[in-house]
Design a protein around this nucleic acid. Structure first.
Lengths: 343, 343
DNA sequence: CTGAAAGCGCTTACAG
DNA sequence: CTGAAAGCGCTTACAG
């Protein structure tokens, strides 16, 4: 590879000190520098195709203008669309982003936090995995700038932006009740993650508020790594047995997709046999008829808020902000009483 | 933020030189160092929770152990699943990845190459956008390590890994002919990108090889940013008019999704009214019946090969490799004569 | 208006 | 076995 041109090269060519070159190329102390030298420096910098070495700059300034992003899996549409928004927002402020996938694994998460901080990212945006509270507490203790996104730990005081999952579950469950469904089941993830818990508590609270009985056997929690067989079994139980369900709230699009596959295979129909609402949009269900109602996450705000919070936190490290955003119920026929007509 | 602990801190605490600390922490010159000091150094490093400053290390060694990845849009499933594979493969060798989305825009691409190289990435993996040949040539000229992925420019000698699009188009078109379709249309992107061109030339070559007439009005090329209306119009023309088509090869999953939407809206059926094969898998079509046949890209190999090529190129900058990988035709009822039965 | 110099946190010949 | 020193490419008080 060709040798890189440095400030020194320019300084020598122009016959001036390195300091001066640095000043003009960074537009500092402008008034104090003669126009002639300034333009000459700029010209030869351009001629030599000078590109500042960010590494050297970073070592000196202790700033890398880099954000570390830890998601569960960048290949997952939720993560990648969030990543894209974060990328664009960060770029506005001259930041680039390094990413890593934790696979919902605490150990990988730890390793990622280590590598990213070793690389001196200025801050971290993290969608924390299960069992990573300790890592987050550590970050707090070190005073390292970071913001949690999508998920957070209520017991530790940090910056975060997340969907108001409780409220969203209330909305979804409420709609199902309003539509006249009598026996609403829940299929969600088995997780200690607070955001997931709130999807459950929101569902339960709403049933109670409407004087409905909350039935344990109508709540199914599926492990991350067994969504296929897990959902199938759950569906069998919810739709088989004696105390059958007439609507299901799915805690995620992935769970819903599995559920719909089962519904198809069994030759059942939505919403005639079973009403459906899910969390998150699903490409995979985009052609399904009827369209499946869902809680739409405010991705744009989620990503932008995360970046802005982080930049504030990097700038002056004094306060923490907690933001809960409202989801939007995108209602379609899947969650409407059969006599009503929507979409 | 707490002050970071440096080699100096450890050296002082142990009462030894910085050099020595550096050596033992990097496991260099092991035999030459007394076990006692070594263990003592390691212990206090652990006690102080020392984390090497990669920036300082990089400045000295001129290596950042960072790969820059430029895709068209990280939110696009093709890009993000590739990104994930690259992430994992890079991680095996201690590399992390910084990404950026070019949006198929040459200017953004240029800007990304600049920022990433300024940040001293050791190499670049690029899915080059239209009209970026000059940028790629520049990189070649500078001797900067990089590999093109998914796309490449036949006229410039670079490392690349890509699907053999010509062959894949041959396979797809051949299957359609074999299944007995008489009038096969093509809907693809309007682009000068060689990989896209090959999807067209492979289609044309196969028709010719089978003695079929190649009809210009059966080849529709759609702009990137008008896939919705573009495909609709194309479908109208292919399925309307007098010289109607009985099968369509779609140059991408996105185009196919639009096409299938049109087919649905018109109340047509696959494959009875129109046979279909598309390039790339589609989540959005996963529930569609019948399943749509597609050319499956070898994502795993694509990503891994890209990383390995890049690392070789970084290690010794002498040769370039070109790899074309075969796609796999995942055949289902959408592209089979109505009398045959598959899936 | 301009330059010499220190220093960011490391690595690595070199000398002892 | 160990240390002093130079240097990676910058920035930035400080002195003139």
């Amino acid at each position: 590879m060709k040798k890189k041109v440095s400030l020194k090269d320019i300084a020598q060519k122009v016959g001036v000190s390195i300091a001066l070159v640095s000043y003009v190329l960074n537009n500092k102390n402008e008034k104090r520098i003669s126009k002639d030298v300034a333009t000459k420096i700029r010209e030869t910098a351009a001629a030599l195709n000078y590109r500042a070495n960010q590494i050297a700059k970073s070592l000196k300034t202790n700033k890398t203008n880099t954000i570390g992003l830890i998601v569960s899996d960048i290949a997952n549409p939720f993560s990648s669309s969030l990543a894209r928004i974060i990328e664009d927002e960060a770029d506005k402020y001259g930041y680039t982003v390094i990413f890593g996938s934790s696979d919902e694994d605490a150990e990988k998460s730890k390793k990622l936090i280590d590598t990213l901080t070793n690389r001196q990212v200025d801050g971290l945006i993290i969608a924390p995995a299960d069992d990573t509270v300790e890592q987050v507490k550590m970050l707090v203790q070190e005073g390292f700038p970071f913001v949690l996104v999508d998920r957070y730990f209520p017991e530790v005081q940090t910056n975060y932006v997340a969907l108001d999952n409780f409220k969203a579950a209330q909305t979804a469950t409420g709609q199902l009740l309003h539509a006249g469904f009598k026996n609403i089941g829940l299929i969600t993830y088995k997780s200690t993650l607070h955001n997931l818990q709130e999807r459950k508590t929101g569902y339960i609270a709403t049933l109670k508020a409407h004087g409905r009985e909350v039935k344990k056997h109508h709540i199914k929690e599926i492990g991350y790594h067994e969504t296929g067989p897990g959902v199938e079994k759950a569906m069998q139980q919810l739709l088989g047995g004696k105390d059958v369900v007439d609507a299901i709230l799915f805690g995620s699009n992935i769970l819903a997709l599995q559920g719909v596959k089962y519904i198809n295979a069994r030759g059942l129909r939505v919403p005639e046999n079973v009403g459906v609402i899910m969390f998150d949009e699903s490409e995979a269900l985009s052609l399904y008829s009827p369209p499946i109602s869902y809680i739409k996450q405010p991705m744009e705000s989620l990503g932008k808020t995360a970046v802005n919070m982080l930049l504030e936190s990097i700038a002056r490290n004094n306060k923490t902000s907690q933001v809960k955003l409202d989801g939007e119920l995108v209602l379609s026929r899947s969650a409407v009483a059969v006599t009503e007509s929507v979409v």
